[in-house]
Structures are given as C-alpha cells and as structure tokens.
C-alpha cells in the first residue's frame, strides 16, 4: 500500500435497499405476523390424515408393483390419444403463434397490430387450460377434439409471448443492416430477425410439446380425452397399480422429450 488512506478505520456497510428504518422494520415484522397468522388458519384434521396415510401407502407401494398388463388396451389407447393430441396441438399452436408473436413485438409491429396481438396473448394466458377445456367440452362434447383445441389455444398464449419477447430483445443493428439493403418487410424478417430467434423458437416449441403432453394427462379429468381419462378411471376404481403404470409411462415419455430437446438445442446454438 503505497498511497495514503484519507481516513483510516473508516467503516463501510452496504446501504439497505429500503433506507427508511421505520418502514423497513414495519415491513419485516408485518410479514412475520402475517406468516404466523396464515399458518394458524390452516385447519388440519389429524385423524383424517392418519386414515389417509394408509391409502397413500398403498398408492406408493403400487409403484413397486405397477400393473401394465390388466388395462393395457386402455393405457395404450389413452397414451396414443395423448401423444396425438400433444403433437398436433403443438404444431397447430406454433404455426398460429408465429404471426401473433411477430405482431406482438413492439420493435417490428405497428401499434394497432401490437395491441390486437397482445390482447390475444393476454386472453389465452388469462384462461387456465382446465377452464378452457370445460368450456370446449361443453361445446364439442367429450373427447380429444376439445383437448386438442384447448392445448392449441394455450400454446398460442405461451409461445407468442415468449417469441415476441425474444424478438424485442434481438440485436437491432443486425436487423437495421438488412433493412438498409432495400429488403422488403418479409425479407427483413427472414434475414434480419429469424436467424436471431430461431434457436429459441425451436427450443420453446419442444418445451411446449412436453408441457402439452403433461397437460393432456390432466385434461382427461374434465372429459377432454387422452391418458387423463384412463388415469381418472383407474383412480375411481382404486386400481392404484394401473395408475402407477400410467404415471411411470408419463414420466418416461416426459424424460425422453426433455433429453431429446436438450440434444436438439445443443446442436442449434
């Protein structure tokens, strides 16, 4: 240390993010009181839990002895239906999401288009899959068509939003350089924007396929087809061994999708 210290022993502490000490302590204490009060309102019926433990144990034990055979035809049909629903809804959803995503990116779309596309996204995201499925089952009746439409609708909200945000984050100078060559709007998108967002678009599409497959297991509960219907029936009949078999297959398929999406994304970078 060759340079002189102006005031030796001068203390330093990181400044707190809320500088008013009264407000800071009020917030901390208030949060603690709320937490305690919130826990106090949880009403646990311990004797019911004790009884339920037995059923839970049976369910867990069923995993050590999953029954793939007894209801295999139902499982196979349900799985096939789920896979078809997940795949077709992802493809349709992605195809519709691309124009909406372009329209919802503020840096490339004019304001009226932007507002319309953002509204579509907001609507799709505001309605949970289950609610949409109940509505569509009411319109189209039980079966995979309602499930397919639900998942395609949900995919639009998810993918358009994330695609639009990726476009908004893209490097402006690359797009500007393409515009300066005298390209048309479509050429500008194809050369200036698409190469920048393609890896993320593909990664998100595979991720969405994964989500749609898992969602298809839930949608069966409200009658929208897929493996969920089979799973629901198995639970209703207390056939935990069949339910376990179904869940194991779902886990295997999701893990396969996860692993392959990792491989594909690594190749795309």
């Amino acid at each position: 240390m060759s340079t002189a210290v102006t005031s030796p022993g001068r203390k330093w502490k990181r400044p707190p993010s809320i500088s008013n000490p009264a407000l800071r302590w009020a917030l901390i204490i208030g949060a603690l009181i709320y937490l305690v009060a919130a826990f106090a309102t949880i009403d646990v019926n311990w004797s019911r839990v004790y009884e339920g433990l037995e059923r839970g144990k049976k369910f867990i034990l069923a995993f050590s002895n999953p029954n793939f055979v007894e209801r295999w035809d139902d499982i196979y049909d349900g799985m096939l239906e789920s896979i078809i629903m997940a795949f077709s809804s992802t493809v349709v959803g992605v195809i519709i999401s691309i124009p909406i995503g372009l329209g919802a990116a503020r840096n490339i779309a004019p304001l009226p288009v932007y507002l319309v596309c953002r509204s579509i996204i907001a609507l799709s995201r505001a309605l949970h899959e289950i609610i949409v499925a109940i509505l569509l089952v009411a319109i189209f009746g039980f079966g995979p068509l309602a499930g397919f439409l639900t998942l395609a609708f949900a995919t639009i909200g998810f993918l358009s939003k994330l695609l639009a945000e990726d476009i908004e984050d893209s490097d402006k100078s690359q797009a500007e350089a393409i515009k300066a060559t005298g390209s048309s709007w479509l050429q500008w998108i194809n050369y200036g924007i698409q190469p920048q967002v393609m890896p993320r678009l593909i990664g998100l599409s595979i991720y969405r396929l994964d989500i749609n497959f898992r969602e298809s297991a839930i949608l069966g509960l409200v009658g929208a087809g897929g493996i969920g219907a089979t799973l629901n029936t198995a639970f209703d009949r207390y056939e935990f061994d069949t339910a376990a078999a179904i869940i194991i297959i779902i886990i295997a398929i999701v893990m396969t999708l996860e692993y392959s999406s990792g491989l594909i994304r690594a190749r795309l970078q």
């Binding site: 100078s173 060559t181 050429q187 050369y191 890896p199």
Partner: peptide, 22 residues
C-alpha cells in the same frame, strides 16, 4: 452488424435482397 447465425455467403447475398423476390 452481420447477421451472426447466417453464413458469410448469406450475409454477402443479403445485399441483393432489394433486387430479388421473397
């Protein structure tokens, strides 16, 4: 301001975009 994920040739040819159709 090259488009980084395009090849050198694609970047050069992008200068022709005003002359060719979509």
């Amino acid at each position: 301001a090259l488009v980084e994920r395009l090849s050198v040739m694609e970047n050069v040819l992008s200068g022709q975009l005003g002359y060719v159709g979509f």
